[in-house]
Amino acid sequence: MLLTKSPPIRKEQSSSFRGALRASGVMAFAGLGDAVLYPVLPIYGKELGFSVFFIGVLLSVNRFVRIIANTSIANWVHQIGIRKMLIITATLATLTTFLYGLKLGLISFLLARIFWGLSYSGLKTSTLCYASQAKEKSGLVFGLSQSIKSLGALFVLWFGPIVIGEFGIQNGLFSIASISLLGILLAYSLPKIEPKAKDEVVKTSLTFYPNTINLLVFIVSVSIDGILVVSLSYLLSGNMVNSNELLGYVAFYLLLKRLFTLLFSIIGGVLSIRFRPLFLFSISISICLLAMALIAFDITILGIILAFLFNTIVVTFSPLIAIKNSQNKDNSLQAISSVSTWWDIGAAVGAFIGIYAIEFIGIQNLYLSLCITGTILFINFSIKNAKSSRSTI
């Protein structure tokens, strides 16, 4: 059945609910420094002494760090607790933003980006772990959590360029880092809820195991968070008359992507009160695949909008689906680490191969291939999930 009846949140669940939302607020504050670099570093990078090549390295190295670090970070959360991990990583994230503004050179900036990658891994794992503790209305909790996390990026994409343009990149980054300090204070207010699987550890072999949910998440991440993001200029260039107009449109669609995260994560969470998260997840995957087909057949604008919109639902519910499909449902850290790692791998691979793939096989063939591959993996996921559901009846 698609409809579910969900009881109201009991008093004993309220601590988990509050913890999940506050933890998302911590991540929103901690991520201000990273979010502002993407529009700012390509413009001010030369002022800081970085070449175009190293600007690309600095913007991407944190994602590769996360791929390597997710399993170890999850085990650290298991050892020291969720709240302590959020306090540590929020503090480290704030320090990295201060380091960005110190103009200490490439090596120092690179180290700051590596430490930010570690911080992000801890922040994301801990935030999802808080959300997983809320057993009632879990879809709503994951939706609200995802939406709150996006608020920081939306704020700094508006505020950051203004303050940096007015006071310079150094003072601007110091101001943004000062705001991030609020995340540390918020982390201290978190309830002390710890992972329940005290006797379980997160295993690297399981994190990188290509099960059905991991492969499905991987292809969606490759397609939308990787290839689609880096190929927007190619897809939109046919309708533009000059580079300034093209830049404006690309920026608009990237901002639209973040707005979708803010709005539709909440909508998806509310819908999950009435519909099962797996149903919403499956519908969203189907529409993402349809979006790839639309782009392949040159229905570009509609394809981009549908991909960004429904990818929001996929991102929101994929950790919850991974936990519920895990063989060991008591060890949510393993499922969170695994699905997060495969999403990071997909986004990194997609961003890396996107432009080369377009040059090699063309945009239409590329997106058609993504649609076909994703459809096969989605059918495989659905079959395996149906078998698993029947075996538990």
Results as ranks from 00 to 15, higher is better:
Leu228His: 12
Val230Tyr: 05
Val230Pro: 06
Val230Gly: 05
Ser231His: 06
Ser231Phe: 03
Leu232Tyr: 01
Leu232Thr: 07
Leu232Gln: 02
Ser233Phe: 02
Leu235Glu: 03
Ser237Asp: 09
Gly238Tyr: 11
Gly238Pro: 00
Gly238Ala: 09
Asn239Lys: 13
Met240Ser: 09
Asn242Arg: 12
Ser243Phe: 13
Glu245Arg: 03
Glu245Thr: 08
Glu245Asn: 07
Tyr249Gln: 11
Tyr249Asp: 00
Tyr249Asn: 08
Ala251Thr: 02
Tyr253Asn: 00
Leu256Asn: 00
Leu259Ala: 09
Phe260Ser: 08
Thr261Ser: 12
Phe264Gly: 09
Phe264Gln: 13
Phe264Asp: 11
Ile266Val: 12
Val270Phe: 07
Val270Leu: 11
Leu271Ala: 15
Ser272Gly: 01
Ile273Glu: 11
Phe275Val: 05
Phe275Arg: 03
Phe275Cys: 05
Arg276Thr: 07
Arg276Ile: 00
Pro277Leu: 02
Leu280Trp: 07
Leu280Phe: 12
Phe281Thr: 12
Ser284Gln: 11
Ser284Glu: 12
Ser284Cys: 14
Ile287Val: 14
Leu289Gly: 13
Met292Gln: 15
Met292Gly: 08
Ala293Trp: 15
Ala293Arg: 15
Ile295Asn: 05
Ile295Gln: 09
Ala296Arg: 13
Asp298Arg: 15
Asp298Thr: 13
Ile301Asp: 06
Ile304Lys: 04
Ala307Trp: 09
Phe308Ser: 02
Leu309Glu: 15
Phe310Met: 14
Phe317Lys: 03
Ser318Thr: 12
Leu320Asn: 04
Ala322Tyr: 02
Ile323His: 01
Gln334Lys: 02
Gln334Val: 01
Ile336Ser: 05
Ser337Arg: 06
Ser338Asn: 01
Val339Tyr: 09
Thr341Cys: 10
Thr341Ile: 04
Trp343Ser: 15
Asp344Arg: 11
Gly346Lys: 10
Gly346Arg: 14
Ala347Asn: 12
Ala348Leu: 13
Val349Trp: 09
Val349Glu: 07
Gly350Trp: 15
Gly350Lys: 14
Phe352Ala: 12
